Computed example of a mutant assay.
Amino acid sequence: MTVTDDPVLLRTEGHAAYLTLNRPRAINALDHAMVNRIAGALTAWERDPEVATVVITGAGERGLCAGGDIRSIYEDARTGGGASAAFWRDEYRLNAYIARFPKPYVAIMDGIVMGGGVGVSAHGSVRVVTERSRVAMPETGIGFVPDVGGTWLLSRAPGLLGTHLALTGAAVGAGDALLCGLADHFVPAEHLPALLADLATHPAREVLSEYARHAPEAGLAAHRDWIDHCYAAETVEEIVDRLLARGEPAARETAGTILARSPVALKVTLAALRGAGELATLEQVLEQEYRVSCAALSSPDLVEGIRAQVIDKDRAPRWSPPALAEVTAEDVARFFAPLREEADRT
């Protein structure tokens, strides 16, 4: 393997260490080996007194990272394997490590940043978006539930904005990413090369103060009234009813978006978000997400959702059950049950 073939490129320059996700054809989707390589690099750089700042970027023009390698998850779920659970265990540990990393961790959230891409960036201490950023946790569209600490982040967004993003899977630009607490600074994409170079010789805070600009308008801010009212409902069914009853076209369009998602995933997502809001630490939330993710492996909607969106691309998933009213409380509770490995430790 040549250096340029490596899916994670590592280098140091001056007092900065640079980590580049290097699978541009797959928008730098993460696999297990990449997660382990990132964790190993961070451990080494944490201990290296010459490294003052860590920077993560994505190769290519399309984005930092589109998420995990869901084709692999699809095959694993179809065959009843355990590779996905092992991947998630290490990925979620990496997310927690990034959140507590003791040195400035600068995430360049340029282009597409979704799912696992949010996990390796939005827990960092310095999060930079550009006019090209599209940030999302789109899991309900594939019969899955926001993970990688996404329920921690979204449960702490202002008002009910996080619930809106979690249920719809909507992608947001720079202004809304800042509004929702998923990013810290807006830097025009044309300034990124200079910013990256300056991080090698100057403190991160000083560099960002030079390059950060006023962000584009946060579009969601104008919709806070109906978002906060509708998503305060107790159930997903009532949320949809409230959206449909509103006069704003955007609210009614949102109801249609939600109704196209996996009914099971929607109800589990709402429960996960509300549970995350009551938990005190990111680690506790990641433990909850790990239970949910492992349970999803045996849910027919995960395989069907990936099939419809990624494998066959017919965009016509056949959810099971197909309607929100058919998803029972017991169906939802199954996703939060302690795992066998937890029971073995008690």
Score class of each variant (00 low, 15 high):
241 D>K: 11
245 A>W: 00
240 V>L: 01
32 H>D: 15
179 L>Q: 09
288 Q>A: 07
168 T>N: 00
93 R>S: 15
77 A>W: 05
295 A>P: 03
203 P>L: 00
33 A>E: 14
69 D>Q: 13
92 Y>V: 11
219 G>K: 13
88 W>P: 04
300 P>F: 01
336 F>M: 00
231 Y>N: 00
107 A>C: 09
232 A>F: 05
268 V>T: 02
78 R>V: 10
93 R>W: 06
284 Q>W: 01
16 A>G: 10
308 A>R: 01
252 R>H: 07
101 F>T: 08
91 E>T: 10
65 C>H: 06
198 D>E: 15
81 G>T: 10
237 E>A: 14
51 V>M: 10
282 L>F: 05
59 A>I: 06
33 A>P: 14
337 A>Y: 04
223 H>Y: 14
123 H>D: 08
287 E>S: 12
259 L>K: 06
289 E>I: 04
321 P>A: 01
341 E>N: 09
273 L>G: 03
192 L>E: 07
169 G>P: 03
67 G>E: 04
128 V>A: 07
107 A>F: 06
47 R>Y: 11
198 D>K: 10
235 T>L: 00
152 W>E: 09
49 P>C: 10
328 T>N: 02
54 V>E: 01
185 H>S: 13
101 F>V: 08
57 T>S: 15
126 V>K: 14
282 L>K: 00
55 V>W: 02
76 D>K: 09
202 H>S: 15
226 W>Q: 03
59 A>P: 05
308 A>L: 03
113 V>R: 01
18 Y>F: 15
166 A>M: 09
185 H>N: 11
44 A>L: 14
94 L>R: 07
84 S>R: 07
200 A>S: 15
90 D>N: 12
9 L>D: 07
134 R>K: 15
278 E>L: 13
4 T>Y: 15
345 R>M: 06
176 D>H: 08
169 G>D: 04
162 G>R: 02
70 I>N: 13
25 R>K: 13
183 A>F: 04
185 H>T: 11
170 A>R: 11
